[in-house]
Design a protein around this nucleic acid. Structure first.
Lengths: 346, 346
DNA sequence: TTGTAGGCGTTATCAC
DNA sequence: GTGATAACGCCTACAA
């Protein structure tokens, strides 16, 4: 196949020839330097440098049966939280000498399965998923390939897949409790349209569970479920507040919604937090610079990413860590929440 | 628990055995279906389905000498503009039956080179870079591996690497011209601290060139160069406006800076655009929801991603496209710019 | 300690 | 049209 005589990429045997040793020795210099004589080693390394040799990772993987590669399927790259988590994941994997392959599913389960398939065929040694809604088919595939899995950003998964994440429900409970403590009783909720998004789903269920526990009724018209975007958050807020002006606090399942709500408040002439309190979820970097700064929930994405790397590598080394790791979520109280007017008046 | 031994991942020869044909035939069914008898084909496909066979991409790549894989090195995943471009790139590559491997360099040239190396060793068929500052070493590597390159988000590159992007300088020129037309004469500029970021560098040089062309002096104390972040934009703005209250318009080389500036305006009690005009660059999704909505420059990231895919695939098929593609940048005029007070008064 | 040889799973080049 | 066979580049028993 190599019909052309262009400066061919040099391979291990070329190095061997140049150094006057056997291919096996070169391989050993690369993989088990401790068992080869120093002088030979020097010769080999010189030859490697001169030829600019770099091993063919695919051939290596084929021979070894593993690729030192981990795949991650991210729902979207457009969210800083996933971006941060992915960065941390990659950084840590690099420390373990693993390479991260990132695939993007665009919140489409079909594409997610497709990406998993591709990653598996490409020989990843492990897979990082996001959320709880993995398809049975994906699990079957992973089992067939005997590839360890870990899912992130949720603290429990249906199919007993190891999970690393925060307890969304608990976080939502804290948010509600804080608002209750401030004196709020009339709430609105903006969550994402549930399709294919279980983290948001968990947050949503978390709010409802929290409301139930607190014995606060939550009428249907006080719930808005819309696609994820600032613009949708804005229109949802308008709908909510128009339908029921009695609402004094709006809980959003993401900062994007909250930022949209803030924008609409400004437009409607509502003062935050004087007329209404608003909470977000994610603590994206602009949230501290909104007007007013947003009260929100911080998700330790970097920690999650790092732990996911630790988990997978440990598993691959035969030291399986605990099945689930639940991280504490932290409420960041800023300027978008305060006691409701009624409470202040009385 | 493990009552049943895990079924070994079946390979091509297993399928062959099950179907009662030779491995070669199975391979042909997969790659050249048109030259194998229909009945045999049916038998083979059935066996494939029954065994749940999936080809080993690495073995395939080793044999073929190419992997149908493209690598992209992104400076950071935390910017929506790159996220969008990457998504578009991946989508288009998928149409061509290529897989995208994403690596993240965190704006660190050393890590960038490292990632390029890893990607190359893993056998990518092509590489997508971002910006103009590729290291000579990276280029040498790519040449050695004989892997085509394309760089994005800049419209020209120093080393005659094919480039697909917008003309940052021209865009900045347009921004300045628009402000001049509104009557502004006293400008401030916030750009990123130049290290390792040539796109911002191009924008920066673009402003200065534009100022020169317009014969407007720009004193040193009216220029702030800070690391990329909303917070730095905010402090930079404060420094600028404190040092020289005569400034009527501040040009920011990114929306992040502009959003920070907006926040500081609010804090200082400055009204935008009445007291001061502010422009951004990127048109991130929140920019239309700031108060006031931000006048900014839209970078067609999705188009860039798509074209990068087209370019690489065409090159790999022996049809090299034009060396550089220059896309028009579009100024999005929103509420953060208006005529300066002085102009209105007179 | 170093070299030889066989195999990892797939594809392409030959004969048949 | 189909089946053996030799690569592809590397690693690791095993032998020396």
């Amino acid at each position: 196949m190599n019909s052309k005589a262009l400066p061919r990429r040099s391979k291990l045997s070329d190095v061997a020839k140049a150094a006057g040793v056997s291919p096996a020795t070169v391989s050993r210099v690369l993989n088990h330097p401790d068992i080869v004589r120093p002088d030979l080693q020097a010769k080999v390394r010189r030859a490697i440098a001169e030829l600019g040799y770099a091993p063919d990772a695919m051939a290596r993987a084929l021979s070894l049966g593993r690729s030192n590669t981990i795949g991650a399927i991210i729902p979207t790259l457009g969210m800083t939280i996933f971006a941060n988590g992915t960065v941390a994941l990659q950084k840590r994997l690099r420390e373990y000498n693993y390479t991260l392959l990132i695939a993007n599913a665009e919140y489409d389960p079909e594409r997610e399965l497709e990406e998993i398939k591709v990653l598996l065929e490409r020989g990843v040694d492990g897979l990082v998923l996001v959320g709880d809604r993995m398809s049975a088919e994906a699990l079957a595939l992973a089992r067939q390939y005997q590839v360890p899995l870990v899912t992130t950003y949720v603290s429990e998964s249906q199919f007993s897949v190891p999970a690393i994440g925060i307890d969304n429900a608990e976080a939502m409970h804290q948010v509600l409790q804080m608002l209750l403590d401030l004196g709020h009783r009339e709430f609105g909720v903006i969550t994402v349209y549930p399709a294919h998004n279980d983290r948001q789903q968990a947050r949503r269920q978390g709010v409802f569970a929290a409301f139930e526990a607190a014995d606060i009724p939550l009428a249907a018209h006080r719930i808005a479920e819309v696609p994820y975007s600032v613009a949708h958050g804005r229109t949802a807020f308008k709908r909510l507040i128009t339908a029921d002006p009695a609402i004094t606090a709006v809980i959003c399942s993401s900062d994007a919604f909250a930022i949209g709500a803030l924008a609409e408040c400004k437009y409607l002439g509502l003062s935050v937090p004087r007329d209404i309190s608003i909470t977000g979820y994610d603590d994206v970097d602009i949230s501290m610079h909104t007007d007013p700064p947003l009260t929100t929930v911080n998700v330790p994405a970097a920690v999650i990413g790092r732990l996911a790397a630790d988990h997978l590598v440990a598993t691959l080394n035969g030291r399986p860590p605990p099945l689930t790791t639940k991280l504490p979520a932290q409420i960041i109280v800023r300027g978008s929440t305060a006691a409701p007017r009624s409470a202040r008046k009385s």
